[in-house]
Structures are given as C-alpha cells and as structure tokens.
Amino acid sequence: MSESGKAADMITSSPVGEWSWEPRAKDAEFRHGHAAQTATDLWRRLAEPGLARPGGKAGVRVSHRNDPRDRVVIRIDCPGTWLEPGGTYRAEKLFAVQVEVWGGTLLVAMLETYSDAWLTMDTRGREQPEVYALNASRFAAALDGISALLGGPPEAGEENRYAAPSTTGFRDVRAEGPAYDDAWGTFETLDRARLLDSRLPRSEDDYEQIADGPVRYVAVRRDDRTLGFVWAAVDDSAAGYVPRTAAGDEAFDAGAAWVTALREARRSGLTPLAALRDAVRRPAPPEAGVIAEGGPVEAPSLDALEELSGRY
C-alpha cells in the first residue's frame, strides 16, 4: 500500500487487461489492407468517448508472401486520456491496438490497456469510486463500439496480477479483494527496472538502488512533459532514476542517459547526494531532457516518489 493512501490512476508497463475479437470475413478472404483498416477503426472507437488521442507509435510486420503462414501484424501504441476529479490527464501509451491477418483466412484484433482508471480498485489495492465513476462507462462504451464494428463481443483476457478483465470492462473485485494488495508496488518497479536496464550495458558502478528513508529528487523534463526523476537518499546511501511511466519510451530513453551519468559520478568518487547536486549543475545531453528549475524536492520515501512517477 502506498504511503499516500490516496487512490489515483496508475500507469503500468505491462497490460492491466486485454481483449480479442475474431470477426468473419465479409469478402472471400481477409487481405493485408484489412489489418490497417481495422486497426484504424479500433482507434476511432477509442477516440469517440475521448479515450484515445492522435499520435503514438505504429509498427508493421509482414511475412513473405510465399509463406503458407502469410501474416501481417499492425500494432499501434495509443496515447490517451483519463479523468480524475482534479482534471484530465494523458499517458503516451494508455492503450495498444494490434491486428493480425493470417493467410487470408483469419483476422484477430486485440486491445490492451495500461491504466487502472477503469477499475473499482486501483493497482495498489485502494478503492477509487470517483475515478471509476468518471471513466469506467466511457471504456465500456469503447468496447461496445469495437464489438459492434467487429460483429460480436470480445474474448476477455485471463485475470492477471492487476485485474480481472470481462467482456464489458473489468470484474468488480471489491468483495473478494484483488489478487495482490499492492500489485503495482510489487511488480511495476521491477518491470520498469528491466525496461531501463535493457537500454544500458551491465555495470558494477551503480549506486545502491534501495532507500529506507526520505529522498531528494529533481524532475527531468522535455518541452512541457516530465520524463522522470533523478533522486538520492537523504542519508547519502543510494541514488537512481525513476521513469514517469505515462511519458512512454522517452522516459526510459532519458533514464538511460541519467543512469550513465550517475555511474560516471560514482566512478569519480562522488557520494549519492553529491551526484545529485552534480546532475543539477551539469549540462545534460539532448536525449536526457533537462533538469526542472527549483532545485531538489524532498519526498518522505522512495515509495512516495515511485507513486508520483506512476501517476500523472
């Protein structure tokens, strides 16, 4: 359980829920163009209730045409917004849409969400009636729109460590309780560490990554967005970088630059707090973003900072 005790939407690196559809072909067969059209149509159904926003990242994979398993895959990481009593917030990967066409005979459409705004309990195990009331019906409307488009209800994904998907959204688990009291705190920090480590060479020069007491931190920004936070323990025992998940891949790309800088600081003999002060003074490379003005801020714990980084 987070020390803040206040429920608010958390953004995850792995899906909170997923759904799939297998529509029948209206023509004699599915063509590669059906994949692109269906992916676009799914995005539009998410945009109609105000969930998806323009932008994001798209990728296409096509197998060899002479392959009997001829296959095209289109995947779109969709920026999107959710509502909270304090306003409207955005994540650069709120949804992912994937459409596959296999051999002209099978089309599979999939939707993933990386937000817990649609749940009665957030991914830290806290009830969130206001957030749920503002968002769940909009998400259910998007699922209904996709189902109407594809001619039938979705196959809901299996219950995972965060939530239990259903054909209309998510099952209410308040009576039985979630699978984990604090799934986000248990798993997301590890998932984010793996994503950050995948961008870096192995090294023995990292500072200790665990802090038992308060931490000081500075925000890393690009344009009008916060990408993450460089931090050091107040007792000078640890330092690191926490990505802001809602910023998407940019948060991890910038993090790789800051972790590299922290490793250099440790090799030069700086303590964690001295490394934080050095980060504020030193010009950063373009891929790292810039340190926000205002100097270090203190958080009561590393968990509190991670909570902030997982929200808006």
Rank of each mutant, 00 (worst) to 15 (best):
S203Y: 10
L276M: 13
A256N: 10
V230R: 03
Y89D: 12
D278I: 00
R202P: 06
L94E: 12
P129F: 03
A136W: 02
G33M: 05
T105C: 07
L83A: 14
E22D: 10
H34P: 08
S147F: 10
G248Q: 06
N135I: 05
F187H: 07
D144T: 13
L150R: 03
V72T: 05
S198T: 06
S4P: 10
F170V: 09
L190I: 14
A25D: 01
T245N: 10
R216K: 15
R53V: 14
Y217L: 05
A183K: 00
P286Q: 04
R281W: 03
M10S: 11
P296F: 03
V97N: 06
V62H: 05
V297E: 13
L42S: 02
R53L: 15
E158D: 14
R216F: 08
G248M: 06
V62W: 05
D223A: 14
E188W: 01
P272D: 09
A175V: 14
T12Q: 03
E298G: 13
R90A: 11
A274H: 04
D303M: 05
P85R: 11
A246Q: 01
L134V: 12
I74M: 10
G86D: 15
G213I: 07
E298K: 14
A279N: 02
F30Q: 07
L190W: 09
T189M: 05
D224Q: 14
A52R: 03
T88N: 11
D182Y: 07
A96M: 11
F139S: 01
A211H: 09
A148D: 15
R263A: 11
D249S: 09
R161T: 11
P129Q: 05
V99R: 00
A239L: 11
W231G: 02
P201T: 09
R277H: 14
L119T: 01
K26S: 14
G269R: 09
W184E: 02
V242Q: 13
R124D: 03
W82D: 04
R124H: 01
A136R: 08
Y241P: 00
E306K: 08
D235G: 05
G228F: 02
V215Q: 07
L195K: 04
V230F: 02
Y114A: 13
E306H: 07
G169W: 01
N66P: 00
A8F: 08
R202K: 13
